[in-house]
Design a protein around this nucleic acid. Sequence first.
DNA 1: CTAATTGTTATACCTAGAATATAACAACCA
DNA 2: TGGTTGTTATATTCTAGGTATAACAATTAG
Lengths: 122, 122
Amino acid sequence: MYIEIDFNSDEAIYVQLRNQIFMAIATSQIKEGESLPSVRALADTIGVNMHTVNKAYSTLRQDGFLKVDRRRGAVVAIDIDKLTSMEKMKAYLRPLIARGICKGLTQEEIKELVDDLYDELS
Amino acid sequence: MYIEIDFNSDEAIYVQLRNQIFMAIATSQIKEGESLPSVRALADTIGVNMHTVNKAYSTLRQDGFLKVDRRRGAVVAIDIDKLTSMEKMKAYLRPLIARGICKGLTQEEIKELVDDLYDELS
DNA sequence: CTAATTGTTATACCTAGAATATAACAACCA
DNA sequence: TGGTTGTTATATTCTAGGTATAACAATTAG
């Protein structure tokens, strides 16, 4: 798993980490049932504190992307709840779409971006 | 202009404010060339500090949504730069799409959400 | 059995950002 | 002239992010 953190970004490290894990799962670099590195190991390789990685893992567990097993560590286990996922996605999307409309982006242009990203990420 | 702030949200007030102004412009509640309330007036009506509103206005100006005129205040003036807008949108969208793919959302389902939101916001 | 590693929790500390509170400035307008 | 505009400056409080140790029970490897 290739993780790259931008320490000069205004985005929190644990958020960057979370997003990269999203992308790794989406692109099947990590698959359902496979284990992620231990919090200490990953923290060591990317050069951050153990608790920063733990926070990323904890939020991923809470949002239904991981399950933590004593013997296997953090295992990818997606909790599929389409209704909730759609609602969350809609809430996240709303201000972005509004921003795009203000900037004159058309419905088709935005959906082309979705197509591009969907291809890039799966 | 109807602004509603959730003081218990983990989202910064100036970000909520920015997003609601996006939505107000997208839905034509405020139109190109029209003025927004003064920083002091808006701060007073929603019950926050003047600088919080000023920060929202400043970022909107910097991102090309407003222009500030001494005599007319903050005026809606969209700086259209489609290439930059598309790139920004793509960067914002990427982790969201990745998250959706992980949760099993299909390309069509995501584009339906875009359709719904585009209708809702224009 | 022992030693090392696992996730987890707790505590303490530092820093940066968010928000508030005043205050002042020049420019504008009634 | 007096009030309002956007803007800037300074100071304070509070919270979140990140780091640093430390300890715990459970598991695993030697």
